[in-house]
Design a protein around this nucleic acid. Structure first.
Lengths: 153, 153
DNA sequence: TATTGTTATACTCTATAACTATA
DNA sequence: TATAGTTATAGAGTATAACAATA
């Protein structure tokens, strides 16, 4: 006979995937934010540039939709990135209402710096995993990401 | 010869564990928040109750430390939980400055409801994984959680 | 004087709503 | 009239700082 709520067992809240993803994700996001703060970026800037790099969105409306944020937030993110020379805004000649964003060389370099920071954190975060565990984790996370239709990749 | 920044490859930002944990974690947290909103709770309330249940903290200061939030936030979370009869505040007779929080029966029931909600989301989220992939994922996440000294897990 | 809890205040983030330009 | 972008405003969430009670 077991406890109905199974407070310590594998059915308890802390053992669920959503709980662990939520808590680990929050910590991971904070670590990443701290790492890229030095180059003047926040995670959402990296997310926007990643969407541009992947070619899944170009106009600000498309970006807002893909990133799952309000259009007004894209304006501020793009302002910041344009101000530091990471992206360029060019009016779409076919529809002059649209601002098409493109990554500059500097933007690509910054995105590379973000990736390098992320890889350093990966090494730190996954130090306790064996190589095969790490591989399995990466594959599982990729499947989960695909399952929820992840905005930014 | 490869591109220096390897923008699409497995070294790129979207393929890192931190990036995927961050994005998936945010989605998971939102899903969980939406599920438990109906019972008047937010993820941080569940985290606080989980810490109480696990016995890793009792006073509000200890909770603030374990949860990684400001003491003033614990006051508000505890106010809310006390208001709905999920926790009790009792003064520590040995040190009357300390408020010791304890879960009530109703609090334990609510925590069980949170766990049930999380399990439902797990089923939905991990539908694309095989049983063995799921098991491997759970083990890996547990190791990562331990590695970062997770507050509430 | 130091510490726990509380209250008051301010800041960050983000969304909603109003506005401008273009279609 | 409808849409892309922008600006202005407002709300949620959380931290910092001041305060009260106890040690």
């Amino acid at each position: 006979m077991r406890f109905m709520h199974d407070v310590k067992g594998e059915n308890a809240l802390p053992a669920t995937v959503v709980f662990r993803l939520g808590t680990l994700g929050s910590i991971a996001a904070d670590m990443f934010a701290a790492k890229i703060e030095a180059i003047g970026l926040k995670p959402k800037h990296a997310g926007l540039m990643t969407a541009l790099q992947a070619g899944v969105a170009a106009s600000q409306q498309e970006l807002a939709s893909k990133l799952g944020v309000a259009p007004s937030l894209v304006v501020m993110l793009a302002d910041h990135l344009e101000g530091m020379g990471a992206v360029q805004r060019v009016r779409d000649p076919d529809d002059r209402r649209r601002q098409v964003l493109t990554l500059t060389d500097h933007g690509r370099k910054l995105l590379g710096d973000c990736a390098a920071a992320a890889r350093e954190l990966d090494a730190e975060l996954t130090a306790g995993l064996t190589a095969s565990q790490l591989g399995a984790l990466q594959r599982s996370l990729a499947i989960l990401a695909e399952g929820v239709g992840l905005p930014t990749g």
